[in-house]
Nucleic acid binder design. Structure first.
Length: 349
DNA sequence: AAAACGGGGTC
DNA sequence: GACCCAGTTTT
């Protein structure tokens, strides 16, 4: 392909564009591998603008590997609250603990070692190695696959896991050995700013290298076939107070959806059961008066909750496994966004 | 290989 | 409503 003869020119153009146009982001003001690592984990499936404030707060609170290694898990979840994919932060702490214990607090600098850390997959490994240590390793994310599929007219389905290897091999052929950090970040920045799903080819610094542009196929690439059919799950949510005005919250299981987050008791709605019946059957609690609160949908990547929330007062003696919290205590617990939404609504009354 | 795993911005 | 975002882990 044409590009093969112009690899050096491509690198030069890409990197000079990147150095000129790159956004000023907090994690670009540091070379601390741990800080870079944190940013990469936060950025997984998450937009840059969303991550910025979380990153600054997180680094402020946990400036070193050792600060994070010794952090309290519930406090950690609270800092992550609203970011989503909460297993990321538990895996991150697990990985950081290993670095503190087995690597003297120094993030390892080989793909073999860093990839063994919890939460560090092929992308994050390559990103930390190239950005923090300037090692020529591939870091293939959605941006890079989109950019390369267009430049090289790669029509393999990027939703298929086995095809990721194609892009990794291309990057290893193409990467700049002198400045792999700017090369990888340049590819991603290009995907974020120019080679977007709806590409801005007229502004593109590497337009001359782009096979898709020459053939007018930039809108058709990359090929991505996977389609997910989402389930709809109707749920009841019960905000219950005891006679002292305290709130009943329950901690979700330690694995699965929203692991270890706190919520008002929630019940998946079956058949045409009433809220009162559901509450009695699941928790053995009888409520005199259950008043309907807000109804709304909460959309996850793989399912949708249709939430009907209720408010009620518990008069009878609560079971011992139930925990009640004051308003201040509730606010300190990590809660997922749909629960925060109900809570905010209740407080506004 | 496919599904699970959050939340929000955009067109 | 569909897409998709600096993906990884579990099944």
């Amino acid at each position: 392909m044409r590009l093969f003869k112009q690899k050096e020119e491509f690198r030069k153009v890409l990197i000079s564009w990147y150095l000129r146009e790159k956004r000023d982001l907090p994690w670009r003001r540091t070379s601390d591998p741990y800080h870079i690592w944190v940013s990469e984990v936060m950025l997984q499936q998450t937009r840059v603008e969303t991550v910025i404030s979380y990153f600054e707060r997180f680094i402020d609170k946990y400036p070193t590997v050792f600060d994070l290694a010794t952090a309290n898990e519930e406090e950690l979840l609270k800092v992550w609250e609203g970011l989503g994919y909460y297993s990321r932060v538990r895996n991150l702490q697990s990985g950081v603990k290993e670095v503190a214990a087995n690597y003297g607090g120094i993030v390892p600098s080989t793909r073999g070692e860093i990839s063994k850390l919890k939460g560090v997959g092929p992308y994050t490994a390559g990103a930390v190695l190239s950005i923090a240590y300037n090692i020529p390793e591939h870091a293939v994310d959605g941006n890079v696959m989109r950019v390369l599929s267009r430049i090289l007219l790669i029509e393999d389905d990027i939703a298929q896991p086995k095809n990721r290897k194609i892009f990794e091999e291309v990057v290893m052929e193409l990467i700049d050995k002198e400045d792999p950090s700017s090369f990888n970040q340049g590819m991603m920045e290009l995907g974020a700013l120019i080679c977007t799903p709806k590409p801005k080819c007229l502004l593109c610094p590497v337009q001359q290298f782009c096979g898709a542009f020459h053939e007018g196929k930039q809108e058709e690439l990359p090929v991505k076939l996977k389609k997910v059919k989402k389930k709809i799950v109707p749920v009841f949510s019960f905000a219950l107070q005891n006679e002292k005005g305290e709130w009943l919250l329950m901690k979700r299981p330690e694995t699965g959806l929203l692991a270890n987050m706190w919520e008002f008791p929630m019940i998946e709605m079956e058949k045409n059961i009433s809220a009162e019946q559901a509450l009695y059957e699941k928790f053995g609690v009888k409520i005199k008066h259950l008043s309907p609160e807000i109804r709304f949908k909460h959309i996850f990547s793989h399912l949708t909750w249709e939430i009907q929330s209720f408010h009620g007062i518990i008069n009878e003696l609560p079971l011992k496994q139930f925990q009640f919290f004051s308003e201040e205590e509730v606010e300190a617990l990590p809660m997922p966004v749909p629960v925060l939404k109900i809570w905010t609504e209740l407080k506004s009354r």
